[in-house]
Design a protein around this nucleic acid. Structure first.
Lengths: 352, 352
DNA sequence: CTGAAAGCGCTTACAG
DNA sequence: CTGAAAGCGCTTACAG
């Protein structure tokens, strides 16, 4: 056998190769390759075709994706990199749903997804950047403007197509598409709602470090507040988005500055923590104080009253990211380099 | 230049290769390869080393992972396949946290993770199975015994190491490790607790289709119930785990069979839906009826009273899966083929 | 300490 | 309709 004659091969691979099938079917490897890739129309005779197909089944042949990738110079694999302070980067439903949408859209179109979460300080060493193995990169980056700019510079060095979700281009990226949602519109809708409900002293409650989505929501709120003379806005931040920790941050603010009329939170879980806190202090929601969130994930239904919020379509954002990337890869360029997904107000019982 | 002479190459790749670096540094590709892979001790002179390192930086060389993979016959990539009825396979915090733990443990050890969610009918076509590209597969499979057996047979055909999470071997898999948690113990603890609290008419409330974890919890409950003469157990299932749908299923049962003393739910979100329902019917929790959940994820804190539950460590389960897989790959065999993670009771206000 | 060459498993331009 | 051969970018056994 040929195998035995190769002096430099490792332990004989038990995997079936194209050559094994070709030998068994009595044809060349090229013919088998054509059959595998559906290029047999007019190129492979029907008797040959049947023979090859039989041997493929009999030998349980599976194409070696890696060899194909090397030859074609495309891996049909996309890398997703998620920069997150915490190691639990998919504990956030937003991220989990986005990744789900991304995998699904890629899978539908024959692509695979490699996911990696990195903490800011490990970004430089991310496998996605260090070694070339993906056809493109989808990035979800948080951190300060300076940090994110640095990350985008590193992404640029890969010279692969890039889709950035929930952020904008901070440097000129030649082959890049950004996908965002109307965070500013959402902030605006919520601010208008609570002001119409009579609130004058507003708080925007958000986590630190900042994150483009959180900042966008804040921008919308500020715009509305600026348009109303008698309305004030204060900022309360929390380093830890956990239930107890965020309540502590808020409590500290109350002790020093008194109670607001409304707490606009940058997401639903902060809103629920806020609501439970003020309720435990004997205040009524929404009569004494209005509360709003952002995102509208399933767990919003667990607290009473249900938080007024804005619906984010995180799954759709991931799905779009995958579609845009695949289109870029097949067409040669991004058809659209700046996509903004709509949001919608979801009124609940936590506002009047 | 050599590039220009290759008649059959595609458009000249702009990517820097080992050969480019070698030419620039005036050494052979082998020397560069040795430097890249840290095999220069005693094999590459220090002057040569410096020269090569300078050219690597200057040319921004990044190793081509795919070529390396083909040569070494290992991709350092693990595929994770998640079988789920819904396309939103990571909407479940259990799955999201497990995947997070898995990526993190793989990343730490230089491996990458490809994630794919498939609906049962698409399992056969999963990329992970059809093409060879991973060093191993981690599988999270749900469905009936018959379905899961079929899936395990397909996994077997890949002849790669397999880690199964939250299930057992249904067929003989020669190169496989299973990782579970003490679901049965958890069910037992909860059943004992509510019975001690005075409950006699119990319900186990679970989703359909069945899922090994859900079944394990039920087994624990049944064991305890069987040991108490006066205690009865009924089953209520829901096809849809959504808030409203699960309440409808439960409501239907109540209308036909009356109210139980305790509702043991197979997870926290079903428990919260159950609690909200009985509260809306004017009953008090835990005075009139006891409620328990399972998992103890963050959102458990959002409902009042807080659900009594059992803590699952989904992140750890994923992390272990990654560690076991990497050990298998480096050592040649699984050190441990049956791992069970501990659970613990987390008492809340929903039981006496 | 350094290099020339084989080969991993594919695909494709070319020749028959 | 079919085949022989080059080459994708690496690593490594072997020879100097």
């Amino acid at each position: 056998m040929k195998k035995a004659q190769k002096p430099r091969s490792r332990a004989p691979s038990k995997r079936t190769t194209l050559e094994d099938v070709a030998t068994a079917a009595g044809v060349s490897v090229m013919t088998v390759s054509n059959v595998i890739n559906g290029k047999h129309t007019g190129a492979v005779g029907s008797a040959t075709l049947r023979r090859v197909e039989r041997e493929i089944r009999r030998l349980k042949y599976r194409p070696h994706e890696i060899a194909r990738t090397l030859r074609l110079a495309r891996s049909s694999t996309i890398g997703m990199i998620i920069v997150h302070e915490s190691r639990l980067f998919m504990a956030s439903p937003f991220v989990a749903l986005m990744v789900t949408g991304l995998t699904n859209s890629l899978t539908e179109r024959g692509y695979s997804l490699i996911v990696q979460g990195v903490q800011p300080r490990d970004f430089v060493n991310a496998a996605v950047l260090r070694r070339v193995s993906n056809d493109g990169i989808v990035a979800h980056i948080s951190g300060s403007d300076r940090e994110r700019t640095g990350f985008q510079k590193l992404l640029k060095t890969t010279s692969t197509p890039i889709v950035i979700v929930q952020d904008h281009q901070l440097i000129k990226l030649p082959d890049c598409c950004v996908i965002n949602q109307e965070d500013e519109v959402g902030g605006r809708l919520l601010a208008e709602l609570v002001i119409k409900g009579g609130a004058r002293k507003l708080i925007y409650f958000k986590p630190r470090p900042d994150w483009p989505g959180v900042v966008g929501r804040e921008r919308g709120i500020r715009a509305v507040v600026a348009a109303h003379g008698a309305v004030s806005l204060a900022l309360v931040t929390t380093d830890d988005e956990g239930f107890a920790a965020s309540q502590r941050s808020l409590r500290q603010y109350f002790d020093r500055h008194g109670m607001p009329d409304a707490i606009l939170s940058s997401n639903d879980h902060l809103a629920i923590a806020a609501m439970k806190l003020v309720q435990s202090m004997g205040l009524r929601v929404p009569e004494d104080i209005a509360i709003t969130g952002f995102n509208d994930f399933e767990y919003r239904k667990y607290a009473d009253p249900q938080i007024t919020t804005v619906r984010s379509n995180a799954y759709e954002m991931g799905f779009q990211a995958g579609m845009q990337m695949v289109n870029r890869l097949t067409e040669g360029r991004f058809a659209n380099t700046d996509i903004v997904l709509p949001v919608s107000l979801v009124p609940g019982g936590s506002t009047r």
